[in-house]
């Protein structure tokens, strides 16, 4: 589901369809306040992120304060108010990956892309986040681009992986 984004004002314009979809999701959960987190999950899975305007709409539908919605959104790291990049890079920062050098990998990605965790590159191609543990400890350190898992990543691999995506033809295209 696409939403138009006015980068200058950081305002997004919700289309009629988008509004209808959010309302439908709220209805599906019976407008129950207790289902807020499930609703946010459902909405984020449709839009990729949770811009302010969507949070306002959800608050209105559930008849709760928008501050409460925002308080919940900012409490849980899974929810984001920034659109992810075309190729979201996530790095596992579980202990197994950490002791096998994940921090160096993370720093290398930050350096290569010149962004911090939780940010997206200005061209919208990459965003970077760290995960708690993807449970693929046997492959540590683990890096994911979208759904694609890269295991036993070495620092030197980072530049290669990124440049493949930059070129638009990753040698390991995303599954699905």
């Amino acid at each position: 589901m696409e939403i138009t984004r006015d980068l200058k004002n950081h305002k997004v314009q919700l289309s009629e369809n988008a509004i209808a979809l959010v309302k439908k999701i709220c209805r599906r959960f019976n407008y129950e306040e207790g289902e807020l987190i499930n609703i946010l999950h459902a909405v984020q899975s449709q839009f990729g992120y949770l811009p302010a305007e969507i949070q306002e709409l959800i608050a209105k539908e559930l008849d709760i304060s928008v501050a409460k919605v925002y308080g919940v959104v900012t409490f849980y790291s899974f929810f984001t108010m920034k659109p992810k990049g075309k190729y979201p890079i996530s790095l596992c920062m579980g202990t197994a990956c950490y002791v096998r050098g994940a921090e160096n990998i993370l720093n290398e990605i930050k350096r290569q892309l010149n962004i911090d965790e939780g940010e997206t590159t200005p061209d919208g191609l990459f965003s970077l986040s760290s995960l708690r543990c993807v449970g693929a400890c046997g492959l540590a350190p683990v890096l994911m681009v979208g759904e694609k898992v890269y295991g036993r990543v070495a620092q030197a691999d980072v530049r290669k992986i990124i440049s493949e995506y930059k070129a638009g033809c990753p040698t390991h295209p995303s599954k699905e």
Binding site: E35, I37, L40, F78, R132
Partner: peptide, 18 residues
């Protein structure tokens, strides 16, 4: 939704309550 503290049972319950 990505909050380790929700493993604590009272926090988990609050989270389930939205």
């Amino acid at each position: 939704a990505g909050a380790f503290v929700c493993g604590e049972e009272t926090a988990l319950i609050h989270s389930m309550e939205g």
